[in-house]
Design a binder for these strands. Structure first.
Lengths: 333, 333
DNA sequence: TTGTAAGCGTTATCAT
DNA sequence: ATGATAACGCTTACAA
């Protein structure tokens, strides 16, 4: 393995000149530049980036904290982050935490120990717990923010989007609208439930606690939670699911109980993962701008790493309400 | 930012003792150990891992090359790789290449420049092109190998699995069996097509080129490729799709042409992504052991990085044929 | 424009 | 068991 000294010797210049030729070519004469480059080819030199990072005290890496990378929404955001990072010469360290706080901390430790320059968090932090564990000096932007999220963040208007969905269901004539939510304390659940309640209130429909089933954003939980609606004496005519995966699970359950979607019951999702378009019936849902979210979060983090000021701590991106085939007018029993 | 020298001063010992206390505690007296640890707490010391990596010439990172991380099969494998890596103290650098060779090379360059210790490749290499571009000294294991794959690899028996699928369709009575393949030159396509042909040959059914539609493993390509089967004068009674995403796309097309699955036409997939269980009808498919694949590939790479011998260059893992609701006896027209 | 040389924070060798 | 010190490969004042 040849190093910069070998190149210098071969080229007949000093190591400083070689170093400059690589990182700041303008400061070097054309003659030296040529000598250096042919020397590099000759000895097969590859700069040791570990040494460079060490010396310049920057790792040019960011860690992405994600509860579950197999969630299609998350993987889309990550793809976008990676794309942007690559463009800017940064590496992405994957931190699939499976929701385990301990693993999250291990990854955050990597930036304390200089292996990464910052963090992008894809989990909405629960307000009380958040600030407590992000150490001093670790820069972090949350790419899945909520109204309660502190610090640099990008988010969509979850409440508004949820309200739009439920407003639409109400406009179709639905009055008994069930909910399959995420975990009770999850900020996304809180924001989206607020939107649901706002829509109800706007139409003078009383909030009925028994119409809210708690899931955890997995398909399996949607599948399960939907069961209780099937066996209700007074069944809801529509179900607002807080993500697409639960909606897909719910539809599965409804079908197996002999209910047709949307003729007997309407179902809506949230996220617009790619399967939302291909499931049967295709899903009425809220399209999150995954691409934009990732790109923006990465750009914000980069600015933070460079020590620059953020134009704004919070960036709220528009989400699009997409009407497909899983919603229709309520059945009249 | 305090360093090892600050700790040494605070503890009243030498830097060597501090270093040993951290990386090889057995070599240090209990007294020194205590002094060191309280000094560490006092000055808020975090070891500079970049310096450690630099000094020991190991980055403790591996890059994972994946054509598209939003593909659920890949993200499952990656989750498993990440899990194993984390256990072993390694970081995972995400290399989403989008199938672009140039990006792949940029990532491979990271191991040449010491930012990573090895590579896990999730793309089946095309035989002629493969060896040419993986530089000397870069260790790599292919986690999605095929029969033509060279070098350390883990794979399933694609040909055997495909044959099992088609054997099953034949056993149901199908004789005209369509195929939606991946790109023609993709080794997975080659292996699985070989299995298809073997099954046909075993039942004395002539291979009919017109029954093979070329896709590219995306849902959209499945959706498109299926169209040509719908309009055929003599339609196949079953379609063997080379992955689940194309099968889901195909089913979508068939339905929109008024065909029922499986009553009018059977469809099979490959991979067993989680959505295969939840689509309508649920998909008969081949379950790849994604978890095992990732874990094994990581273990092999680790051994390679440590300079150890591999017990075997090739590891063939069992795949399971899963029968669900998308297949049935052929319709009799 | 170029060269010399002093670090960066750690590990490892060699004494003690 | 502990300490002094020389690397590791690079960047960057500072000099020339």
């Amino acid at each position: 393995m040849s190093n910069i000294r070998d190149v210098a010797r071969e080229a007949g210049v000093s190591v400083a000149t070689v170093s400059r030729a690589l990182s700041d070519p303008d400061k070097v004469s054309q003659t030296s530049l040529n000598k250096v480059h042919s020397a590099i080819d000759k000895v097969g030199y590859r700069p040791n980036m570990l040494a460079r990072s060490f010396r310049s005290a920057k790792s040019y890496a960011v860690v992405v904290l994600v509860p579950d990378i197999t969630n299609p929404f998350f993987s889309q955001v990550i793809r976008s982050i990676e794309d942007r990072a690559q463009q800017k010469g940064y590496a992405v360290l994957l931190g699939d935490t499976r929701g385990i706080l301990e693993r999250e901390k291990e990854y955050i430790r990597r930036v304390e120990t200089r292996l990464a320059d910052g963090v992008i968090q894809l989990r909405p932090d629960e307000p009380e717990k958040q600030s407590s564990y992000m150490p001093e000096g670790v820069v972090c932007v949350n790419a899945c923010g909520c109204e309660s999220t502190k610090g640099p963040r990008v988010r969509i208007d979850n409440r508004g989007a949820a309200k739009a969905v439920v407003d639409y269901l109400i406009s179709l004539g639905h009055k008994r609208i069930g909910v399959i939510s995420g975990l009770k304390d999850n900020p996304h659940t809180i924001d989206r439930l607020a939107g649901y309640k706002e829509a109800l209130a706007g139409a003078d429909i009383a909030f009925d606690k028994s119409l809210v089933a708690e899931g955890d954003f997995t398909t399996w939980s949607g599948l399960n939670s939907a069961k209780q609606f099937c066996t209700m004496t007074e069944r809801p005519t529509a179900i607002f699911c807080m993500n697409d995966e639960m909606a897909i699970g719910a539809i599965q359950t409804l079908k197996s109980h002999g209910l047709r979607v949307p003729e007997d019951i309407s179902v809506t999702g949230f996220d617009d993962i790619s399967y939302a378009r291909y499931c049967d019936p295709s899903l009425t849902t809220v399209a999150q701008p995954a691409e934009e979210i990732g790109k923006l979060a990465m750009d914000m983090l980069l600015r933070l790493i460079e020590g620059e000021e953020l134009a704004q701590e919070e960036n709220v991106l528009p989400a699009e309400f997409v009407i497909r085939k899983s919603t229709g007018v309520p059945c009249k029993d």
